[in-house]
Simulated scan of single mutants.
Amino acid sequence: MSRTARLLLLLGTVLVLGGVAVGATLHAAGRADRKDRAQSGGPEVTSGAVRLDAPHRGLFRNMAWGPHRDEITAVPDGRLDGPRTASGVHCLRFHAAAGTGICLQAVHGKLRDTYRAVLLDNRLRELRHYDLAGAPTRARVSPSGRTVAWTVFVSGDSYAGTAFSTRTSIVDTRGRRLDANLETYAVTVGGRRVRAADINVWGVTFADDNRFYATAATGGKTYLVRGDRSTRTLRALHSNVECPSLSPDGTRIAYKKRVAGADPDAPWRLYVLDLRTLRETATAERRNIDDQAVWRDGHTLVYSLPGDYGSDLWTVPADGTGSPHRLLSAALAPAFSR
């Protein structure tokens, strides 16, 4: 056998053995993935096309461990515990309505992470983005999809005894008008204008593209405020309201309330406020709720609680009846099609 033939034979052998090794590695990795999922009881998640305007779909941030963690994921509304379709879009906070999405995401740098708010079209493609001043905490889209809000935690405000405060922004997705900080709005409590350095505003929920509700805090108290973009005003309606969420018919607000006698580290319970009578109703959920609930329909609330993967979604009737039950494991930041 010539030297050339021997070299060709050797090269062929190396290639075959390399292919066998790669195949064995991939096969073992696939088995490990399936084994890990079976042992953990985690949901099945695969890549695919996700649309924000698809009917009868639930959307949320997937929290299951694996290559699709933190991706916006879709499931059929009638089979929320079924296989998940992952979009490839990573978000820390997310919301969507009428084919518009808002994704608050981390931008990983060599020295530190930064954050940005990304406006998404109905195929989850970026329209534009805005740099954020701090870590994301809340996000909402108006029912028409035209107006979007987000809240972040920021540090460095000297008046904040806990060394952080919030900053909330609202943007018109068509006209691109940006209200970068709602603390610049005129705040009234009890009919009097409040001028204080410690005002914080967070947790927007939209009535329409101009009117909204939010939480405003000053002087150690929190208030439900009604906001108006055209007049740049925030008017207090009720005290001890945080992270409001407006019902689909616009008549009630779900919110977290600090209750007397609760553990200071777990002080919030889930309530519903009738906007006409200002009557409060405690839901049947008795655990600490540190979330901005979502209305799945006109009768049911969805909210997050700690779970094996970081967060699970739970549901409870809004009228105080029934009992809470787990809706989805390994999920956060839901949005449901109307």
Rank of each mutant, 00 (worst) to 15 (best):
G190I: 07
K110G: 09
D274T: 08
P264H: 08
G320H: 04
A217Y: 03
R192L: 12
A64R: 02
A284L: 14
S158E: 14
F206S: 06
R232P: 10
T168N: 04
L313A: 01
L132K: 05
G134F: 06
G48R: 05
R125P: 03
T222W: 06
V189N: 03
H27F: 09
G145Y: 04
D274W: 07
R34S: 08
S2Q: 11
V22E: 10
T25A: 04
T205E: 09
V22A: 14
G12D: 11
L111A: 14
A333Y: 04
A282P: 07
L111S: 15
L52F: 07
G220W: 14
L80G: 06
R276E: 12
T162L: 13
F212H: 01
A49F: 04
T321F: 07
H325A: 14
R31T: 08
R226P: 02
R123G: 13
Y271K: 01
A21H: 08
A266L: 13
S169G: 15
E44P: 00
V189H: 01
H299W: 10
A207M: 05
L278Q: 11
V141A: 09
F60Q: 01
T231F: 03
S144I: 06
A149N: 02
V45Y: 00
Y213F: 15
R3S: 07
R37L: 07
V14M: 11
A266V: 10
D157L: 12
V225L: 03
H129F: 08
W150R: 01
G82H: 06
T13S: 12
L124V: 03
L120H: 08
N181C: 11
L120M: 12
P83F: 04
E280V: 15
A207Y: 13
T315D: 14
V294K: 00
R276A: 15
I72A: 06
W295C: 04
P264E: 13
G88I: 00
G322H: 12
L224R: 03
T137M: 10
G134S: 11
R338M: 06
D179S: 13
L92G: 08
Y130V: 02
T13G: 15
R326T: 07
